[in-house]
Amino acid sequence: MTKETELTVVDERHAVDPAPETPTTGNEPMRLDHLDALEAESVHIFREAAAEFERPVLLFSGGKDSILMLHLAMKAFWPAKVPFGLLHVDTGHNFPEVLAYRDRTVAEHGLRLEVARVQDYIDDGRLRERPDGTRNPLQTVPLLDAINSHRFDAVFGGGRRDEEKARAKERVFSLRDEFGQWDPRRQRPELWSLYNGRHRAGEHVRVFPLSNWTELDVWQYIDREGIALPEIYFAHQREVFQRGGMWLTAGEWGGPKDGETVQARSVRYRTVGDMSCTGAVDSTAVSLTEVIAEIAASTLTERGATRADDKLSEAAMEDRKREGYF
């Protein structure tokens, strides 16, 4: 490992040039690797938000980014319990393995979980199914309603700036108006590590502790920490059909259509969202090490490879963000 080589170099440097004026007992290298640094920054953000807001909530889908967030939150407040609950905006198009994981996690750690269901909105007519069948864009209304009814003033989201160019300019503390909208003009410059969470009544702040992580960091950290993930993140046999260059799972939400043929393939998921628009990738990776190797060799971005909703237009994410999406 290159990492060990680096640490050895640091040791030699300190052996040659010990700091004279500060009494120290150990010679341990006082240096953080990139995962340590990202972890420390995320924990700092969680603690800031927990201290500055009255009613925070963590968005939890059972996807890897939300699992990572919960892991970091538990570390941040150890040995106390995480001082906020979870919110799942449920599209109704869930992978059963992911829902099972969600419920297992909530029970194991004694967490509070609120679920806002897109299906309820469709059933009573407040939302209508889109022609393309995807429900990801439909999550915004139930999300904003849940924020209002529970009076959440801070919402932890797993968004990362490396995901998409509208996210590259997102703040760690992102102010939303009383309609949940993101106004680029009202975003506050963030200097040093001073996060300004002040807001007026009715407004809330989205907090993004993973802002500076990349997809690869997430996987490396999950590997290092031994965090368990839902099985669908690893290669498995699945009945899939091809649409828009992606492998979609066959199911009642609109596929396969005429001319699309179902076949069994060895696939895994890079992201987990609405089943109708989240694609699997061909894979033989059954371990984290193998997943990391595949990602490092991948030529497509995470969203480009697996999210039909981001292919709608060049500014698809930007538009959804402005309306109050995650």
Binding site: R161, K169, P184, R185, S211, N212, A315, E318
Partner: peptide, 19 residues
């Protein structure tokens, strides 16, 4: 972003990642 082009504004800093 399109919003920046349309509104003639600039969001102060964009963050890029490489390794």
């Amino acid at each position: 972003l399109r919003a920046e082009r349309e509104q003639g504004i600039t969001i102060d800093v964009a963050y890029r990642y490489f390794a």
